[in-house]
């Protein structure tokens, strides 16, 4: 019995450390003039409440596909909402013609390519996938 408990705790701890190490990087194009942003600013852009960057230029959020680990981490750590809460949030806007959710891209590579190509976009990927084509404006 005690052994099982110890094993469970070990599994939990290792799971937590894996989660902790998988940092999510919020990225913009390398040429985007904005500095680091807090989660409130990023949330507003991703929830369609704000359509511009802090410097006033247009901001277009780029999302990851449903079920991607990066998306789940971002939803949880930055937006603070579960998948179904977000779906509910967007459904309320979609069916009143008041908004459309950010376009979804297949994976980190696709998001990185889309963000690197357009200085008005903002996306997020696993911190390990970051390279010189994009600039990190927040790590969560």
């Amino acid at each position: 019995m005690k052994k099982t408990q110890q094993m469970l705790i070990a599994i939990l701890l290792s799971a937590l450390s894996v989660l902790a190490s998988a940092e999510t990087a919020v990225i913009v194009a390398a040429g985007n003039g904005n500095g680091s942003m807090d989660s409130a600013t990023i949330s507003k852009i991703f929830l369609g409440k704000s359509k511009s960057f802090p410097d006033g230029s247009q901001a277009i959020a780029v999302d990851q596909a449903d079920g991607n680990p990066a998306r789940e981490a971002f939803n949880d750590k930055v937006l603070g909402k579960s998948g179904s809460q977000l779906k509910s949030y967007w459904s309320r806007l979609i069916f009143t013609g008041k908004g459309t959710p950010p376009k979804q891209y297949a994976d980190d590579a696709a998001v990185k390519a889309a963000v690197a190509a357009d200085p008005n976009t903002i996306g997020y990927i696993d911190a390990a996938s970051v390279d010189g084509s994009v600039k990190v404006v927040g790590k969560f």
Binding site: K87, S91, R92, F95, T96, G97, K98
Partner: peptide, 28 residues
């Protein structure tokens, strides 16, 4: 602009909290 929308046509009366998405049961 980004903050102002004008709509014309057949619209929901925004009388209630749930008015806009009254029939989208998934949202509540």
């Amino acid at each position: 602009n980004d903050e102002l929308d004008l709509r014309m046509g057949r619209l929901r009366i925004p009388a209630f909290y749930y008015s806009d998405f009254l029939e989208v049961g998934y949202t509540y």
